[in-house]
Simulated assay, not measured.
Amino acid sequence: MLNSLEKQTPKIGIFSFFAGAGFLDLGFEMTKDFETLFVNEYHKPFLDIYKSSRTNLKIAEPHFGYNAESIETFLNKRGSQFLGQSIEEARATHDLIGFIGGPPCPDFSVGGKNKGVEGENGKLSGTYVELITRNNPDFFLFENVKGLYRTKKHREFFNSIKTKLIANGYYLTEKLINAIEFGAPQDRERIILIGFKRNILTDFGLELNGSPILKAFPWDSKISHISKIVLSLNWPTQETFVENSTKRCPNDVLEELTVEHWFKKNDVENHPNSNHYFQPRAGLPKFLTIYEGDDLKKSYKRLHRWRYSPTAAYGNNEVHLHPYKARRISVADALAIQSLPKEFVIPDNISLTNMFKTVGNGVPFLAAKGLAETILDYIKNVKIKNPEYAEVIG
C-alpha cells in the first residue's frame, strides 16, 4: 500500500471537507509533509476567502481543485467516481491519504439548535463518516463541539459513528481539547476524533490485539500549556471601561495568551481587515457602560485586554466588544483571537456577516497546527518503532 515505508518522514495528502475559510487546513499546510490535495466547502463566500488567503500566503492550489457542492454529492455516482479516482491517483504520489473535516455543529451545540443528528447540519456528520468508510483513507480527523461528546442525547450518536468506523477497520483515539493549550488566546473546547486504518498500522509493524483503541497516541506532545492550570491563574476580572486607555500586563498571568498580545502580534490596527466591524445602531451608549472583562453574559461581552477570549462565536446576535475601544471587535481582531498569521486576510468584497461567521466557525490556527504535528509525530514514531508509541491497544 505504501510507496516508501522505510522513510522516516512520509508525504501525506489531505482531502478537506467542510473547509470553511481553511483554518484547519492551514494548520496542516504549515506542517511539513502535509499537502492539501482537495478542498470541499459548500458556502461559496467561505470558499472565496479560502482561495484568496492561499494566494496571499503563496500556497499552491489543491491538485484536485476546489469544490462548492454539498458533501452529499460525493455519495452519488458522479461524485463518488470523482472522489475515488482522485484518491487512487493521489496514492501514486503520496505515502498516506487523510480526510480532515469539522461538520457544521449548531445541532450539537448546547447553545445552538440542539436538534442533534435529526437536524440538517447534524446529518452531515453522518455523511462525513459514510464518506470515510466508503473511501477508506489511511487516517481521518473529525472535529466538533463538545456538546457531541458531553450531552447524553448526542453522545449516543457519537458512539454510533465510532462503532461504524471500527466495523470498517479503523482504530480510534479521541480527546476533548482546548485551543488555549496550543497557545491560542481563547478558551475553546472541541472534541477531536482521529482514526487510522488497521492495515496501515500493521504496515507500520504494530501488533494489534484487543480493543481498537490507540492507547499510546501522543495527544499532549505538542501542547504548550495545561488548560486547568492556565484557566486557574489569577487573571484580571472586570474594570471600568475607559476608552483608548493603557494598562500594563499583570505579572502573574501569561501574556502570550492574552488578546492584547495577539492584537500587537498581528498589528491589528494596520491589518487590512481593521475597519471591518459592525457599526452600532442604537447600542453605542450601552457599549460605554459595559466593564472591560465583563464577558459572562450571552451577548455584549467586553473582552479584557490582559485575559484570553471566550470562545470566538460571532453569530446568533452574540456581540463581543473591544477591550478599550467603543466598538465591536473587528475582523482583524477576531483573526488574531483565532491565532492566525497576520498575513491571513479576508477580501473586502465578502460581507461582514460572512467574514465573522467563517472566523467564528474555524478551528484556531495554532490548535490545527498542533493537531497536524501530533498526527505526524505519531506516524513518524510508530514507523521507526519508538517503544513509547508501540503500546497501541487498550
Rank of each mutant, 00 (worst) to 15 (best):
H43I: 13
F344P: 02
K297L: 13
T127N: 09
S339N: 06
D333G: 10
N266E: 03
F99C: 04
L5A: 13
S52D: 13
R78E: 09
V242D: 01
N121K: 12
R91P: 00
I337E: 04
F356V: 08
E89K: 13
Y50D: 04
L335A: 04
G293I: 07
D348P: 01
T163D: 14
N56Q: 14
F46K: 04
T73V: 13
P45V: 07
F82K: 15
N121Y: 04
H276T: 15
D95V: 10
F74Y: 15
N144R: 10
A216C: 12
A390M: 06
I375T: 03
T173W: 00
I223F: 00
T93A: 13
D203V: 05
F287P: 03
A313D: 12
E41W: 03
D203S: 15
L206F: 01
L57Y: 04
G147A: 07
F74S: 09
F196L: 09
D333V: 13
V382K: 06
F287G: 08
A68W: 02
K228F: 05
S211R: 11
R54M: 10
A216M: 04
F17Q: 02
G116I: 10
N67S: 15
E181Q: 13
A313K: 15
I166P: 01
P62I: 07
R281A: 15
E41V: 11
D33V: 05
H322T: 13
T374K: 04
D187L: 11
L257H: 03
G293L: 06
D220H: 08
E6T: 15
F241L: 10
E343M: 12
N67V: 11
K265V: 04
H322L: 14
K357N: 11
L148S: 06
Q279N: 12
L193Q: 01
I329L: 13
E89D: 08
L165M: 13
I100E: 00
F74H: 07
K222P: 00
E29C: 10
